[in-house]
Each structure stands twice: as C-alpha cells, then as structure tokens.
C-alpha cells in the first residue's frame, strides 16, 4: 500500500483583467470562480453554474488580437492576460402574443418582429455566440419564412443575449428564435398520436384511483411504496416493459 501524503497543491496564479482592473487568479478557475476569487459577489448574472441557463455570458479579448471572444463565465477557464467583462443582461424586447392564436405562418413572425428585415448579414451575432449557433443563418431562414430551419439552427440557444448586444440591425435574435422553436414544436412538427390517447385517458380518470390511494396513505406506507416502486434497471434495454404498465 502506498503512503498517501497530504501535499499542498498550489495552482499557478495568472493575471487577468476584470472590467479593466488587474487581478491574480489561479489558472485552473473558470471565469465565474475567478471573478468570485477576485472578491466580487454574484447577485445577478449567475444561474445554474452548469452551462445551460445563459445568465453569465462573458466577452473578452486576448492580447495580440482584435477579436472579441465570448463564453459562459461558468464554463470558460481563465487564460493569462484575458481582458473581460460579464454581460449579465442585455435589453431585448420580447413581443407579446397569444400563442394559441398563432397558426404558424411566417407573416405572424414578421408582424411580431418587423426588425427581422433590418439584418445586414454582418455575422457579428454568429461570431459572438458562446454556443456556436449560426445566428445569422437562422435570421436568414426566418426572413425567407422558413420557421422550421430557424428552429433547428437555433436549437442550442441558451438565450444569453450576446447576439442582441452585437447586432447592427438592433434585432432581439434570441427572442425571435424562441418564437420560431415554439411555432415549430406546436404547428410544424407532426403531433404524437399516443399523446392524444394518453390525455384522453387521463381525462377519463385513468389515474384517479391510484391518486386517491396515495392521498390517503400514511407517511410510512407512502415511503415504503416509494422505495418499492418499479424502476427501469440500468441494464433494461429497449424491450424492457414495466410489470404494471400503467403509463402506456
């Protein structure tokens, strides 16, 4: 057995610039942790810390390049001489609509977002997107009325708003893309038939009995039932079917 020694590992400190001020931070940190290490406290501009909520979009530059780089503060590791600021929010107006009243026509999108037609294809949006979404391409698709293509191209969008911050045409791209995805999901993709059957079953009281049973169950019995519930085994495979096939 090898002896385990407690070794103090000291991460190398590197200089970064946060909003123009220089800080020495451990090189292993993400931008978010580096900002906290430097003494800032997050009140806004930080959400899931897992790269999906889009609250911590950050723009930065590196010496020797004119390029504007971007990333999510919670996902991007600091680099020496990084010159950064976090853009926790960028104003972009989301048009209001009653979704049920839409029918999926391109003109409905045009009406809610006329500014679509101010895009000049400068591509600043795609270049700044931390999720590598081809923003310019989905705007191009929407201008020609192809909502489906726009929904598909924008699928990885996390609504961080960096595209809107860089837009020459003053578009709120990510809100428009969200509308496109909603319309696509509701009106343009085939609806699952079994979902309709399921909803009808529920409305007809399929789960009423078991639900009432749970409601009156005492706490210990409830815990026992929960622990004993049937779960799909890790090795289940595709043809696994639950014994109590209540969900289908």
């Amino acid at each position: 057995m090898t002896e385990v020694k407690a070794v103090e590992i000291k991460a190398k400190l590197i200089p970064i610039y946060i909003m123009g001020k220089k800080y020495e931070v451990p090189e292993t940190l993400t931008i978010m942790k580096a900002i906290e290490y430097a003494g800032y406290q997050y009140i806004r501009g930080c959400g899931c810390r897992g790269g999906v909520c889009g609250a911590c979009s950050t723009v930065y530059r590196k010496p020797g390049s004119y390029k504007i780089m971007s990333g999510l503060a919670c996902q991007t590791v600091v680099e020496p001489e990084m010159y950064l600021t976090q853009i926790p929010f960028y104003p972009a107006i989301r048009s209001t609509y009653t979704f049920e009243k839409l029918t999926g026509k391109p003109e409905e999108v045009f009406d809610l977002y006329h500014e679509l037609f101010r895009c000049v294809a400068c591509n600043a949006c795609s270049k700044v997107c931390p999720m590598d979404v081809e923003v310019m391409d989905y705007i191009a698709a929407l201008k020609r009325g192809d909502i489906k293509a726009a929904a598909e191209i924008s699928f990885d969008c996390i609504q961080c708003g960096l595209c809107a911050s860089r837009c020459m045409g003053e578009l709120p791209q990510y809100h428009i893309a969200q509308l496109a995805r909603r319309i696509n999901g509701r009106y343009l993709t085939p609806q699952a038939e079994h979902l309709k059957t399921m909803v009808a079953n529920i409305e007809a009281g399929r789960y009423q009995e078991s639900l009432t049973g749970l409601k009156v169950m005492d706490i210990n019995m409830l815990k026992e039932t929960y622990t004993a519930r049937e779960m799909e085994p890790a090795t289940g495979g595709e043809d696994w079917i639950p014994k109590e096939n209540i969900g289908l």
């Binding site: 037609f117 000049v120 294809a121 400068c122 591509n123 310019m136 191009a140 201008k143």
Partner: peptide, 24 residues
C-alpha cells in the same frame, strides 16, 4: 446556404457594411 441580399444596393460611398450581405 444563403442570406437575404439586402434588396437595395447601398448608394453611400462610405458605407460598406451593406455590401456584406450580397458579397457573402
């Protein structure tokens, strides 16, 4: 893969940004 051409050619001599779309 294509984008909107911009529909009108920019008539300002000092404006290049509106040429980006058709050139692309």
């Amino acid at each position: 893969r294509w984008n909107c051409c911009g529909a009108v050619y920019s008539l300002s001599d000092d404006d290049l940004i509106h040429l980006i779309a058709p050139v692309r």
